[in-house]
Design a protein around this nucleic acid. Structure first.
Lengths: 330, 330
DNA sequence: CTGGTTACAACAAACGTTTGCTAAGGTCAA
DNA sequence: TTGACCTTAGCAAACGTTTGTTGTAACCAG
């Protein structure tokens, strides 16, 4: 391993000069600086990040916490983050919370053990509510995705889920459906509550009774959509339209409908939420609400980077827009 | 930040004793050890990894390189890795190669800048062939997924792609198709070549002429499957069966077939490869070859961990088994 | 009672950087 | 020519660990 001392020896200067030269600091003559850089290049020098970290107390790492990195929902978010990270030189460190209650612990560990410089937290789990305070106390910058915190000084990126769900449900109701259902997510998530609210709002607006717009609960995975759709088919007679809280559950619902020998959208219409890459290929292609996932990821890191560089202050609240993608499932 | 020195002061011992106590080393009395651990716990001590790394030259990190982390193909592999990593305490550091030629550089950077203790490299790109040598020279353990290196001392996890493709194609041919096509992947990948080989082998075995089993090329994404399927439909009359080199391209192919007003599998049968989560939900559900992706990830990290701990030696060559999943697309 | 062994603890150096301070030399104006 | 100032380079401490070596009791066998 070639160190700064090796370079210093070769250049006939003190290690500190090499450090300053390589980091573009003041106080080193242009000619020596160029010589040092050339030598470093030639010797194949890479700074030892551990040593640098130890003294600067910065790691060049950004921690990213989400429920489960293997969920397709996160793919584009990650891609957006990576686009910015690769440009700015930060390294992303992923960590799954699996929606457990130990979120704060996981974050704490990323901060003290890996000493991440900042954090992006995606998800709206409401069980562990004191992590924002913990993070603010430690003065570590962070950005929340899928959350809209009313509090000052917290950076949030979100979409209006109430309106999104409202739009999806409205689309269903405008097609003339009189008995509809919602397969909601896990009620520990804020977005679940919001999408239920939007669903109910549209149903009320179209004069549906409570009995004509029931809510079923899953946990955002296709198997749950399948299970709940079966429930709907067996217990909720006359239902002709279903709005699922995400696309994965819509996939399961579609399958349950096919297995029952019914046809989408003739017998039952389905509208999803997210617009995963895959939703264009379902049978039939899924009508859904598109979330700007890539944008979410990109923006989160742009904001965080600016804050870390002191070019921006905390308190950014960014509401992105969604879009109804009409395909043929409703 | 609470350091080892703080604990030492509180416990009235030397910092080195604290270090040894906390790391279960010999030479510290049981009673003091317990006292130190209690104090550390109470003070909320976390070791500073930067400092530890600096002296031990170990990072507790494992680098993972793949083409593009946002591809659904990798989701289960990652999950498998994470399962082991969380048990053994290693942290995973992901890096996308985007199949570029700078793979070796990317690896080099992970090694020297982040000082990863080991590497998992998934993919079979054959353009950059000298990275195994580079890694061996640096004596850093690594495991290759999707590759079967003939060389000694290289750890590989792979499936027999020739046989997998052969089985998929055979399934098509046994249904009586006389004119079939293969939508292959990027020929820079070894698996692409192997799957073409398997495809040709089955076709030959069933007496098909070269003209009755042409190969089309995409790059493993659904859009390419769509594009190549359109080509097949317009230029290759009489084709009734298609084997795609992965499921994503099969999705695109299915869409192209639907758009042409044809029905799967009546008019054209489709068989994919991978068995992504999603393939059960296509229209119609996709017949495909299942790769044990979770196993691949899990095994890769188990092997690497054992090697890092000295409980195993390099040279593990693990061939996992695949499976034909018959659904209704062929 | 003595010599040797053992168990524990302290000491100090090292890992590779960064950075505040000091020193040396040069420039320039009075 | 002198003194003030500026530019550049060197020195040394610090970041928080780990670990080889040394020191010192206590213990035990002869």
């Amino acid at each position: 391993m070639v160190t700064i001392k090796d370079i210093a020896r070769r250049a006939g200067v003190n290690p500190s000069v090499v450090s300053r030269a390589l980091n573009n600091k003041y106080g080193v003559r242009k000619s020596t600086k160029e010589r040092i850089i050339a030598i470093a290049e030639e010797m194949g020098y890479y700074p030892n990040t551990a040593a640098r970290r130890l003294v600067t107390r910065k790691s060049g790492m950004i921690g990213v916490m989400m429920a489960d990195i293997s969920e397709p929902f996160y793919a584009q978010i990650i891609k957006g983050m990576e686009y910015v990270a690769s440009k700015t030189g930060y390294t992303l460190l992923f960590s799954n919370s699996y929606d457990s209650l130990e979120q704060t612990d996981v974050l704490q560990k990323m901060i003290v053990a890996e000493s991440v410089d900042g954090l992006v937290i995606v998800g709206s789990n409401t069980q562990d509510t004191n992590f924002p305070r913990m993070l603010m106390e430690q003065e570590i910058p962070f950005v929340l995705i899928e959350r809209n915190f009313p509090q000052e000084n917290i950076n949030c990126i979100w979409i209006d889920n109430v309106e999104g769900a409202y739009l999806a449900t409205r689309h269903l109701l405008e097609k003339g459906h009189k008995k509809i259902a919602h397969i909601a997510g896990n009620p520990q998530n804020q977005v679940t509550i919001e999408r239920i609210t939007g669903f109910k709002k549209a149903a009320r607006e179209f004069g549906l009774s409570e009995a004509d717009c029931p809510v079923f609960y899953g946990n955002y995975v296709s198997l749950d959509g399948y299970r709940e759709m079966k429930k709907i088919l067996s217990r909720y007679v006359g239902c002709t339209g279903v709005f699922t809280a995400n696309d994965s559950m819509a996939y399961g619902a579609l399958q349950a409908i096919h297995e029952a020998g019914l046809v989408v959208p003739k017998d039952i219409a389905v509208v999803g939420f997210d617009d995963l890459e895959f939703s264009a290929f379902t049978n039939p292609p899924l009508t859904t609400i598109r979330q700007p996932r890539y944008e979410m990821g990109r923006k989160s890191l742009e904001i965080l980077t600016k804050i870390l560089q002191g070019r921006e202050k905390n308190g950014i609240n960014l509401c992105l827009s969604f879009e109804l993608i009409v395909r043929s499932s409703a």
